[in-house]
Amino acid sequence: MTDQTAVAEQPSAPEKDPVLARVEERFGERLLEAQVTFDQPTFVVKREDLIALATFLRDDPELQFIRLSDICGIDYLNLGKTPRFGVIYHLHSFKLNRWARIRVQVDEDDAVVPTLTGEWPGANWFEREVYDLFGIEFNGHPDMTRILTPDEWEVHPLRKDFQPPKEPHEWSFNPEQWQKAVQRGS
């Protein structure tokens, strides 16, 4: 069996990737990790530096990652990585025709990340989805509520330790109870 655990990498180019170089020049020690895989630079920062890095990537005239593609969450519980939760941002640059990735990791008991809705209004629903499925809250979000699962749920389904219920369960829809509630007027 070949060793499958190494991260797949492109063969290293003779000179450093320009995006990597520019960001490292500006952020230096604040970058916890920086690498390029499949032509996509990945930057890992602390949550305090998230907005600074994202806006730098967007506003720098050489980089111009003006488009936010995607925000998603990930639970590293089964991989044993800490901090447990990650929030992954993908930015796209028309100029460089590349995508870049920012990763912010937070602990379970302090799962709060600053919101990007001030910079990109389109981040709104993406962050609500991360909150809904993982329980990570976004500081300053205008509407931090669930978006996909029913509003009254309190569980976060995409966590690795989420126990799917066996039916019937307390938050599955029960028509008789619902009709009684409707008749009661609640």
Binding site: P150, S172, F173, P175, Q179
Partner: peptide, 13 residues
Amino acid sequence: SQKMAPIVRHLYD
């Protein structure tokens, strides 16, 4: 989906 279930019932009623 679980969110849609009450609405299906509502429409049926």
